[in-house]
Amino acid sequence: MAKVDMTDVREKDVNVSDLVFKYMRPEHLPHIWCPGCGNGIIMRDVAQAIEDLKINRNNLVVVSGIGCSSRAAGYFDCSTIHTTHGRAIAFATGIKMARPELEVVVLTGDGDASAIGGNHLIHAARRNIGITVIVMNNTIYGMTGGQYSPTTPTGDYGTTAPYGNIDRPFDVALLAAAAGATYAAHGDCFHVPETTRLIRDGIAHKGFSIIEVADVCPTYYGRKNKKGSAVDMMRNQKENFVTAAQAKRMSPEELEGRYVLGVIQELDFPEYTEAYEKVIEKAQGGAK
């Protein structure tokens, strides 16, 4: 077995925060995303959640697919794997299955997770494999320049919906919950402490967890749909998105048109890799 040299040879720049230095790769920053893109905010939430949970970076694997969101994996300082479009959850399943002691986090987008990768999402949820999926839902295909996605609201515009989108949107966390996700939650970019807590609880959860985070894409979604600047889109989340605690105190009338953040499903069910350990026991007992 090879020796592990734990010396960290990096030098910290005074212009980099402790959190970013500890969990990210500052030499690859600033990131590629547009000004005001919410991906960076969500990435910081994930780093904070990892810090809160005291996860050893050597045991952490961040997996992503393809799209704006999926560039996030490479910015984390751990084992990172930027896979093919839609397949991040399938790769993550292999990693977790082969090495259950690793903490596996998938960073994905609405298109990656619910269109081209929708099948893997529902089946990973159904199996209850212990990975955490964070969906950066910007309701648009950003990397390719603004085509409508499975989460684009009906009536909104995209470059492939020049007359308005006639599709109905998915609620990705709800979709996964219906498929059996044992932890499913909604977060956003504005409510950072709440969303960070949801991500933290999702990672700590034994079993499949999904946190769908309402993202901000001022460049493609915002501009095409006259949603204003990144600040305007953040303000919309501030004013119209409410935490679960706030929602409890609100009347149905007050909740009309609001997006509620928080946990939508939490279940107790055997985790997949643990269940497989029992298969191994059975197979080896039966072999004698």
Binding site: V63, R87, A92, T93, G94, I95, M97, A98, L102
Partner: peptide
């Protein structure tokens, strides 16, 4: 994809 993921470990 799953097999490649496992192999990466």
């Amino acid at each position: 994809a799953c097999a490649i993921g496992a192999s990466a470990t």
